[in-house]
Amino acid sequence: MTFSANHPIIFIIVGVIIGIVVAQSVFFLVKAYKRGLELGIARSTLNATIKRSALFTIAPAVAIFMGLVSLVNLLGVALPWLRLSVIGAVTYELPAALQAAESMGISSVSYTDLTAQQFVTIVFVMTFGIAASLIMAPITCKKITGGMLKVKDKDKKWMDVLMTSMFVGMLSAFLGFIVCDLGFVNGEAGVEFHYQLEYWIPVFVMAISAAIMAVCGILIKKLNWKWLNDYALPLSMIGSMALSIPVTMIIT
Protein backbone atom coordinates (compact mmCIF):
# COMPACT_ATOMS: atom_id res chain seq x y z
CA MET A 1 0.00 0.00 0.00
CA THR A 2 1.33 3.47 -0.89
CA PHE A 3 2.28 5.30 2.27
CA SER A 4 0.91 8.64 3.44
CA ALA A 5 0.86 9.90 7.06
CA ASN A 6 -2.74 10.97 6.38
CA HIS A 7 -3.76 7.71 4.67
CA PRO A 8 -7.48 6.91 5.26
CA ILE A 9 -6.55 3.45 6.65
CA ILE A 10 -4.60 5.12 9.51
CA PHE A 11 -7.64 7.26 10.31
CA ILE A 12 -9.84 4.14 10.38
CA ILE A 13 -7.47 2.27 12.75
CA VAL A 14 -7.12 5.32 14.99
CA GLY A 15 -10.91 5.74 15.00
CA VAL A 16 -11.35 2.11 16.12
CA ILE A 17 -8.82 2.48 18.97
CA ILE A 18 -10.40 5.73 20.17
CA GLY A 19 -13.82 4.06 19.91
CA ILE A 20 -12.62 1.29 22.26
CA VAL A 21 -11.39 3.90 24.77
CA VAL A 22 -14.76 5.70 24.58
CA ALA A 23 -16.49 2.34 25.19
CA GLN A 24 -14.31 1.84 28.29
CA SER A 25 -15.20 5.32 29.56
CA VAL A 26 -18.93 4.74 28.99
CA PHE A 27 -18.68 1.33 30.72
CA PHE A 28 -17.07 2.84 33.84
CA LEU A 29 -19.49 5.78 33.78
CA VAL A 30 -22.52 3.48 33.75
CA LYS A 31 -21.11 1.17 36.46
CA ALA A 32 -20.26 4.10 38.74
CA TYR A 33 -23.62 5.80 38.11
CA LYS A 34 -25.54 2.62 39.04
CA ARG A 35 -23.40 2.15 42.15
CA GLY A 36 -24.00 5.78 43.09
CA LEU A 37 -27.77 5.21 43.00
CA GLU A 38 -27.37 2.03 45.11
CA LEU A 39 -25.38 4.02 47.68
CA GLY A 40 -28.23 6.52 47.93
CA ILE A 41 -26.56 9.40 46.11
CA ALA A 42 -29.31 11.54 44.54
CA ARG A 43 -29.71 11.24 40.78
CA SER A 44 -29.53 15.05 40.61
CA THR A 45 -26.07 14.97 42.28
CA LEU A 46 -24.80 12.34 39.81
CA ASN A 47 -26.20 14.29 36.84
CA ALA A 48 -24.69 17.52 38.20
CA THR A 49 -21.30 15.75 38.41
CA ILE A 50 -21.54 14.81 34.73
CA LYS A 51 -22.54 18.35 33.73
CA ARG A 52 -19.86 19.95 35.91
CA SER A 53 -17.09 17.65 34.65
CA ALA A 54 -18.09 18.27 31.03
CA LEU A 55 -17.99 22.05 31.55
CA PHE A 56 -14.69 21.82 33.43
CA THR A 57 -13.13 19.88 30.56
CA ILE A 58 -13.91 22.26 27.69
CA ALA A 59 -11.03 24.75 28.08
CA PRO A 60 -8.26 22.18 28.86
CA ALA A 61 -9.52 19.94 26.01
CA VAL A 62 -9.29 22.83 23.55
CA ALA A 63 -5.72 23.37 24.81
CA ILE A 64 -4.96 19.66 24.23
CA PHE A 65 -6.31 20.09 20.70
CA MET A 66 -3.89 23.02 20.30
CA GLY A 67 -1.11 20.53 21.09
CA LEU A 68 -2.42 18.35 18.28
CA VAL A 69 -2.36 21.33 15.91
CA SER A 70 1.31 21.92 16.81
CA LEU A 71 2.17 18.33 15.81
CA VAL A 72 0.23 18.26 12.53
CA ASN A 73 2.97 19.78 10.35
CA LEU A 74 5.42 17.20 11.68
CA LEU A 75 3.38 14.01 11.77
CA GLY A 76 0.16 14.56 9.82
CA VAL A 77 -3.27 14.48 11.49
CA ALA A 78 -4.02 10.81 12.26
CA LEU A 79 -1.08 9.98 14.58
CA PRO A 80 -1.38 13.13 16.78
CA TRP A 81 -5.15 12.50 16.90
CA LEU A 82 -4.50 9.08 18.45
CA ARG A 83 -1.65 10.10 20.74
CA LEU A 84 -3.46 13.14 22.19
CA SER A 85 -6.85 11.41 22.54
CA VAL A 86 -5.27 8.58 24.56
CA ILE A 87 -2.31 8.65 26.96
CA GLY A 88 -0.44 11.57 25.52
CA ALA A 89 0.38 15.14 26.29
CA VAL A 90 2.21 17.20 23.72
CA THR A 91 5.08 17.67 26.21
CA TYR A 92 5.72 13.91 26.02
CA GLU A 93 4.87 13.24 22.41
CA LEU A 94 6.94 15.95 20.74
CA PRO A 95 10.33 15.01 22.33
CA ALA A 96 9.67 11.32 21.55
CA ALA A 97 8.93 12.08 17.90
CA LEU A 98 11.94 14.41 17.56
CA GLN A 99 14.27 11.90 19.24
CA ALA A 100 13.14 9.18 16.85
CA ALA A 101 13.65 11.50 13.89
CA GLU A 102 17.09 12.53 15.12
CA SER A 103 18.23 8.93 15.47
CA MET A 104 17.36 8.46 11.78
CA GLY A 105 19.35 11.56 10.85
CA ILE A 106 16.28 13.70 10.09
CA SER A 107 16.93 17.25 11.29
CA SER A 108 13.66 18.83 10.19
CA VAL A 109 10.57 16.63 10.43
CA SER A 110 7.77 17.13 7.94
CA TYR A 111 5.15 14.42 7.38
CA THR A 112 5.14 15.02 3.63
CA ASP A 113 8.83 14.03 3.41
CA LEU A 114 8.70 10.99 5.71
CA THR A 115 9.07 7.51 4.23
CA ALA A 116 6.90 4.67 5.54
CA GLN A 117 9.86 3.23 7.48
CA GLN A 118 10.69 6.58 9.11
CA PHE A 119 7.05 7.18 10.07
CA VAL A 120 6.63 3.67 11.49
CA THR A 121 9.87 4.07 13.48
CA ILE A 122 8.52 7.31 15.00
CA VAL A 123 5.24 5.54 15.89
CA PHE A 124 7.16 2.67 17.56
CA VAL A 125 9.27 5.08 19.64
CA MET A 126 6.27 7.21 20.70
CA THR A 127 4.21 4.12 21.58
CA PHE A 128 6.84 2.21 23.57
CA GLY A 129 8.66 5.26 24.95
CA ILE A 130 5.51 6.51 26.64
CA ALA A 131 3.87 3.30 27.78
CA ALA A 132 5.02 2.97 31.40
CA SER A 133 1.89 4.28 33.10
CA LEU A 134 -0.38 2.45 30.65
CA ILE A 135 1.25 -0.87 31.61
CA MET A 136 2.06 -0.14 35.27
CA ALA A 137 -1.28 1.34 36.41
CA PRO A 138 -3.38 -1.84 36.03
CA ILE A 139 -0.60 -3.91 37.66
CA THR A 140 -0.15 -1.70 40.73
CA CYS A 141 -3.63 -0.18 41.18
CA LYS A 142 -4.98 -2.89 43.52
CA LYS A 143 -1.85 -2.82 45.68
CA ILE A 144 -1.74 0.97 46.01
CA THR A 145 -5.47 1.46 46.65
CA GLY A 146 -5.36 -1.51 49.06
CA GLY A 147 -2.50 0.19 50.93
CA MET A 148 -4.55 3.38 51.15
CA LEU A 149 -7.48 1.42 52.62
CA LYS A 150 -5.17 0.01 55.31
CA VAL A 151 -4.07 3.55 56.24
CA LYS A 152 -7.73 4.57 56.38
CA ASP A 153 -8.66 1.63 58.66
CA LYS A 154 -5.79 2.52 60.98
CA ASP A 155 -6.37 6.27 61.22
CA LYS A 156 -9.29 7.75 59.28
CA LYS A 157 -8.55 11.36 60.19
CA TRP A 158 -4.93 11.07 59.01
CA MET A 159 -6.20 9.56 55.75
CA ASP A 160 -8.26 12.74 55.13
CA VAL A 161 -5.20 14.91 55.84
CA LEU A 162 -3.03 12.67 53.64
CA MET A 163 -5.37 12.94 50.62
CA THR A 164 -5.62 16.71 51.06
CA SER A 165 -1.83 16.98 51.37
CA MET A 166 -1.24 15.09 48.14
CA PHE A 167 -3.41 17.49 46.19
CA VAL A 168 -1.97 20.54 47.98
CA GLY A 169 1.51 19.21 47.08
CA MET A 170 0.54 18.94 43.41
CA LEU A 171 -1.01 22.41 43.51
CA SER A 172 2.15 23.88 45.10
CA ALA A 173 4.35 22.42 42.35
CA PHE A 174 2.11 24.00 39.70
CA LEU A 175 2.19 27.37 41.47
CA GLY A 176 5.98 27.09 41.32
CA PHE A 177 5.76 26.19 37.63
CA ILE A 178 3.76 29.37 36.97
CA VAL A 179 6.69 31.53 38.17
CA CYS A 180 9.35 29.37 36.48
CA ASP A 181 10.17 32.04 33.86
CA LEU A 182 10.76 34.60 36.61
CA GLY A 183 13.97 34.99 38.61
CA PHE A 184 17.04 32.94 37.71
CA VAL A 185 16.58 31.12 34.40
CA ASN A 186 18.91 29.15 32.13
CA GLY A 187 19.16 31.33 29.02
CA GLU A 188 21.21 31.19 25.83
CA ALA A 189 24.07 33.13 27.45
CA GLY A 190 24.06 31.18 30.73
CA VAL A 191 22.02 32.03 33.82
CA GLU A 192 19.84 35.14 33.37
CA PHE A 193 17.73 37.07 35.86
CA HIS A 194 14.19 37.69 34.57
CA TYR A 195 12.14 40.41 36.25
CA GLN A 196 10.57 42.20 33.25
CA LEU A 197 6.76 42.48 33.06
CA GLU A 198 6.43 40.01 30.18
CA TYR A 199 7.57 37.19 32.48
CA TRP A 200 4.82 38.08 34.94
CA ILE A 201 1.99 37.37 32.47
CA PRO A 202 1.24 33.82 33.79
CA VAL A 203 1.20 35.23 37.34
CA PHE A 204 -1.28 37.94 36.30
CA VAL A 205 -3.49 35.35 34.57
CA MET A 206 -3.40 33.18 37.69
CA ALA A 207 -4.33 36.20 39.83
CA ILE A 208 -7.23 37.10 37.51
CA SER A 209 -8.49 33.50 37.65
CA ALA A 210 -8.22 33.53 41.47
CA ALA A 211 -10.05 36.89 41.61
CA ILE A 212 -12.92 35.65 39.40
CA MET A 213 -13.18 32.53 41.58
CA ALA A 214 -13.23 34.66 44.74
CA VAL A 215 -15.99 36.92 43.33
CA CYS A 216 -18.02 33.81 42.42
CA GLY A 217 -17.52 32.51 45.98
CA ILE A 218 -18.79 35.78 47.44
CA LEU A 219 -21.83 35.82 45.10
CA ILE A 220 -22.65 32.20 46.01
CA LYS A 221 -22.47 32.98 49.74
CA LYS A 222 -23.94 36.49 49.95
CA LEU A 223 -26.64 36.25 47.26
CA ASN A 224 -27.19 32.51 47.70
CA TRP A 225 -26.58 31.96 43.97
CA LYS A 226 -26.06 28.21 44.34
CA TRP A 227 -26.41 27.65 40.58
CA LEU A 228 -23.11 29.48 40.14
CA ASN A 229 -21.33 26.64 41.96
CA ASP A 230 -21.29 24.54 38.78
CA TYR A 231 -19.91 27.34 36.64
CA ALA A 232 -17.42 29.05 38.98
CA LEU A 233 -14.29 27.14 37.94
CA PRO A 234 -15.00 27.00 34.17
CA LEU A 235 -15.88 30.71 34.37
CA SER A 236 -12.65 31.64 36.16
CA MET A 237 -10.63 29.55 33.67
CA ILE A 238 -12.22 30.81 30.46
CA GLY A 239 -12.50 34.39 31.82
CA SER A 240 -8.82 34.59 32.75
CA MET A 241 -7.73 32.92 29.48
CA ALA A 242 -9.76 35.52 27.55
CA LEU A 243 -8.34 38.37 29.64
CA SER A 244 -4.78 37.07 29.08
CA ILE A 245 -5.13 38.40 25.51
CA PRO A 246 -5.51 42.13 26.43
CA VAL A 247 -3.05 41.70 29.33
CA THR A 248 -0.41 40.33 26.92
CA MET A 249 -1.17 43.07 24.39
CA ILE A 250 -0.74 45.82 27.00
CA ILE A 251 2.50 44.38 28.37
CA THR A 252 4.22 43.42 25.14
Binding site: I18, V21, A32, L39, I50, T57, S85
Partner: peptide, 29 residues
Protein backbone atom coordinates in the same frame (compact mmCIF):
# COMPACT_ATOMS: atom_id res chain seq x y z
CA UNK B 1 -12.03 10.96 48.28
CA UNK B 2 -11.42 7.92 50.51
CA UNK B 3 -15.10 6.89 50.68
CA UNK B 4 -17.01 4.69 48.22
CA UNK B 5 -19.17 7.71 47.37
CA UNK B 6 -15.95 9.57 46.50
CA UNK B 7 -14.85 6.64 44.34
CA UNK B 8 -18.16 6.76 42.44
CA UNK B 9 -18.11 10.55 41.89
CA UNK B 10 -14.42 10.49 40.88
CA UNK B 11 -15.04 7.71 38.32
CA UNK B 12 -18.07 9.51 36.84
CA UNK B 13 -16.06 12.73 36.64
CA UNK B 14 -13.01 11.16 34.95
CA UNK B 15 -15.14 9.12 32.54
CA UNK B 16 -17.14 12.22 31.53
CA UNK B 17 -13.98 14.29 31.18
CA UNK B 18 -12.38 11.58 29.01
CA UNK B 19 -15.43 11.34 26.74
CA UNK B 20 -15.75 15.13 26.38
CA UNK B 21 -12.01 15.49 25.63
CA UNK B 22 -12.19 12.78 22.96
CA UNK B 23 -15.30 14.41 21.40
CA UNK B 24 -13.71 17.89 21.34
CA UNK B 25 -10.51 16.55 19.75
CA UNK B 26 -12.51 14.50 17.21
CA UNK B 27 -14.61 17.55 16.24
CA UNK B 28 -11.38 19.57 16.01
CA UNK B 29 -9.81 16.93 13.74
Amino acid sequence: ADSEEGEVISTISIATSSIVTIIIIAVGV
